[in-house]
Amino acid sequence: MSAVRSEWRRSRRSVNNDCVELRAAAGRVRIRDSKNPGQILDISPAVGACFVAYVKAAAVS
């Protein structure tokens, strides 16, 4: 069995490193605030997809 490493990702539109970062790990999606990286929200991929869609829609509105 091989371990899959993923890195924290942030939007290219992020300014001053004040952003939300996402990471896929072990069939889960983890979300954290770049200003407070010790607090991590662990959610399912389905909820992660809804979160990303909501954020993208809000950015357009």
Rank of each mutant, 00 (worst) to 15 (best):
S44H: 14
A59G: 13
A49G: 08
R28P: 00
Y54L: 15
V29E: 00
A24K: 02
R28I: 01
R23F: 01
G27W: 05
V4A: 10
I31F: 05
D42Y: 13
S34G: 07
L41H: 04
R30H: 02
R13K: 10
R5P: 03
A53V: 12
S11I: 04
S6C: 06
C50G: 08
G38F: 07
E7D: 08
M1E: 06
Y54T: 14
A53G: 15
I40W: 02
M1Y: 05
R13F: 00
S34H: 00
G27N: 12
I43Q: 01
R28L: 00
N16Q: 11
N36G: 03
E7M: 06
S34C: 07
V60S: 14
A25D: 06
A3M: 01
S61Q: 13
N16A: 05
S14A: 06
K56T: 09
V4S: 08
S6K: 07
R12I: 03
R28Q: 09
R32D: 02
V20Q: 10
A58L: 10
G38P: 01
R10N: 10
I31Y: 05
S2F: 06
V20D: 01
V4Q: 14
F51C: 05
V4D: 09
D18E: 07
R10M: 11
P37H: 06
I40D: 00
V60F: 15
R9Q: 09
A57G: 07
A58Q: 15
S61P: 09
V52D: 12
V52M: 12
R30P: 00
A26M: 05
A24V: 00
A58E: 12
N17I: 04
P37E: 04
Q39G: 04
R32W: 03
P45Y: 13
S6M: 03
S44R: 15
R9S: 10
N16M: 10
R32T: 03
S2P: 13
I31W: 04
V47C: 14
A46K: 15
I40P: 00
L41I: 10
V20P: 04
I31P: 04
V47D: 02
S34F: 01
Y54G: 15
